[in-house]
Design a protein around this nucleic acid. Structure first.
Length: 276
DNA sequence: AGAAGTTCTCGGGCGC
DNA sequence: TGCGCCCGAGAACTTC
């Protein structure tokens, strides 16, 4: 489901909804979600009594900060959070519930069951898997053209695969990689190490532009994404290439093509994004 | 039937 | 031959 703009939006809504709440107990209905600690009882026991003090984001991961603990959560394809009153019926696919001492609960739902949670003591999460080897944050000031080119410019793989690799740059997924490559006029199959500095300049501007515009719109709701309050984003209405197979290109009116690049469904304009 | 917004693991290929 | 890196394919699961 979520890429950087969607996770950023969930982060912001959770900061509105759950900061200051104290966890009374935790129930886990699908143990597979909990990756650390390996003992599910220990996961629930360690969280009990702790208060949420803030929510941050690293790449596509949420970092739920508590007093002395950090819960690292990845939504993968379909994970979502919602705040409920304790007496509301528990919906299907609800796998983890954080019961607060004020009669509300934060529920984690995930139809495809791909999401993960890792619990750490404060200070340990950023230096441990799965966060320790993540790449550049594309909306940080340190994300310059030079940094982008340095991160992916020597890869022989496709530029699309390189941008999807979270070890180089974080937060870009299948929607925004197609959007950014379209905006930059670069074919997704081009070898990353074949791009010119001029093209990296265009690509850098496209990545920052697409992601920041989507954050401002609350993310994209293509299929199932909602933020922590059940609201949809609106950037799906501004997508220029993703999901537009066979529709006329918004720039040149050539029909948009769809193929598979980097193992993912890939949209591009054959005229605006030449192979060479 | 096949694909869906993700990422981890595995094995082959290549270069030292 | 051995090791390490890099890269692509397949797998995890449910829904439409």
């Amino acid at each position: 489901m979520p890429e950087l703009p969607e996770v950023e939006t969930v982060k912001r809504t959770l900061n509105e909804l759950v900061v200051g709440k104290q966890i009374e107990r935790v129930t886990v209905h699908l143990p597979r979600i909990i990756q650390r600690p390996s003992d599910i009882q220990a996961f629930a026991f360690e969280l009990a009594g702790h208060t949420i003090v803030g929510v941050e984001r690293r790449g596509k991961f949420l970092r739920i900060l508590l007093d002395g603990l950090v819960l690292v959560s990845h939504l993968r394809m379909e994970g979502r959070y919602g705040l409920y009153a304790a007496d509301e019926a528990v919906e299907k696919h609800t796998h983890v519930i954080f019961h607060f001492n004020d009669g509300t609960e934060l529920r984690y739902k995930d139809v495809r069951q791909f999401g993960t949670m890792h619990l750490f003591n404060t200070g340990e999460d950023l230096i441990s898997a799965p966060l320790h080897k993540l790449g550049l944050e594309p909306l940080d000031a340190a994300f310059t053209v030079e940094a982008l080119q340095g991160a992916v410019g020597r890869r022989s793989t496709s530029i699309k695969a390189a941008l999807l690799n979270q070890a180089y740059v974080v937060g870009i997924g299948n929607i925004y990689v197609d959007e950014a490559l379209f905006r930059a006029g670069i074919h997704p199959s081009r070898a990353a190490n074949s791009l010119t500095t001029e093209q990296f300049t265009l690509l850098h501007k496209a990545i920052v532009g697409v992601l920041s515009e989507s954050v401002a719109a609350g993310g994209s709701s293509v299929k199932s994404y909602v933020n922590g309050q059940g609201d949809s984003g609106s950037y799906q209405h501004q997508l220029q290439i993703y999901g537009r197979k066979q529709e006329p290109c918004v720039v040149c009116h050539t029909p948009v093509e769809k193929s598979v690049v980097a193992g993912r469904g890939t949209h591009y304009c054959p005229k605006c994004q030449p192979t060479v």
